[in-house]
């Protein structure tokens, strides 16, 4: 089992001086994930908070080879790099015993929405890459537009709450399930505040032969509108309310990694966040009910799948 002390001794592959917000959740994820492999790493990054904040020209916060091409094609970009690596290995230009790992990454905008077809193609073609989605539930880099990962009832700039609307009207898309349907060797959902679980999942993802996908909940004080110092607690609540269950699917077999001792009410998740503030008005009580009902249904289904 890895210890934090040992992880801290490893070299930072993402370094200080990046421009991410106070209390941002992205560095918490990458701090752990980038330590889950000791092999050289190539990263392709979709447009988004991480890309913009780490590479403000003429500087970069990356200590590894890193490439950005466009919003929609981080997965295709990393697939191309991986294909080239294989070709060069075949021709003897890269020594046979040298291993390089490949990571594609994007936020929920660049993964759930804009990059979905590129991601689907990469997974279907079976490239030996890992794709990590840091899901902060909105297009935070451009000011908080709704994405298909935005939860029901959240106020976003393109689904604002007011007298006529309770914010976003649709339930979020279940991307982890979509990726599971690609029948790839490894799919997992994780949270940065259960770092041991995240570390193990990232390690598995890098080690597995063929494509792997990680969906990680990402704190966003700017768009979720909570006090930034309370972020870690909030991410724990997301897991304990089963809003963001931790599970993995290895070769089609579901496994639940964490079962809360006592499943908390979604109100604990919703109350601290300003984006849900309007839901406590009388006329929007149905949204809270619907939210709880949906979470319960998904949790039941997940338990059923992991008991098969």
């Amino acid at each position: 089992m890895a210890k934090l002390k040992d992880l801290a001794k490893m070299e930072d592959r993402l370094v200080a001086g990046h421009g991410m917000c106070l209390g941002c959740g992205i560095p918490l994820i990458f701090k752990v994930v980038l330590r889950a492999t000791e092999d050289p790493l190539v990263i392709a990054n979709a447009t988004g908070c991480l890309e913009v904040c780490t590479t403000i020209f003429p500087r970069t916060a990356w200590n590894v080879t890193w490439v950005h091409s466009a919003f929609e094609n981080a997965a295709s970009t990393i697939a191309g790099v991986e294909a080239m690596y294989k070709a060069l290995k075949r021709r003897g230009k890269i020594p046979k015993d040298k291993t390089i790992k490949f990571l594609g990454t994007g936020g929920d905008g660049g993964t759930y929405d804009i990059g979905l077809q590129a991601l689907s193609g990469t997974m279907e073609r079976g490239h030996d890459v890992v794709y990590l989605c840091y899901d902060n539930n909105a297009y935070a880099n451009t000011g908080g537009q709704r994405s298909s990962a935005t939860p029901l009832g959240a106020s976003a700039t393109t689904s604002p709450a007011g007298t006529q609307s309770p914010g976003k009207l649709q339930w979020r898309k279940d991307l982890t399930k979509i990726l599971t349907a690609h029948n790839i060797p490894y799919v997992a959902q994780a949270s940065p505040t259960r770092w041991q679980d995240l570390y193990n999942k990232a390690k598995k993802a890098f080690e597995v032969e063929g494509p792997a996908f990680l969906n990680v909940l990402c704190l966003c004080p700017t768009e979720w509108k909570y006090e930034e110092s309370k972020g870690v607690e909030l991410a724990k609540i997301a897991v304990d309310t089963c809003v963001w269950p931790l599970y993995e699917v290895e070769n089609g077999k579901y496994k639940l990694n964490y079962k809360p001792k006592e499943k908390k009410s979604i109100l604990e998740w919703i109350k601290p966040q300003g984006r849900f503030r309007h839901l406590f008005r009388e006329e929007y009580a149905w949204v809270l009910e619907e939210f709880q009902k949906k979470v319960d249904e998904e949790w039941e289904e997940l338990q059923r799948l992991s008991s098969l």
Partner: peptide, 30 residues
């Protein structure tokens, strides 16, 4: 603190946390 610092501002020497790097700390309080 090292794990939850978004701006890599926790000073570590060998096996120990030694303090805070105020050049990078943004004061988020996590």
């Amino acid at each position: 603190c090292w794990l939850y610092c978004p701006h890599f501002a926790i000073l570590v020497e060998g096996d120990e946390v030694k303090g805070i790097d105020y050049d990078y700390c943004t004061g988020c309080g996590m």
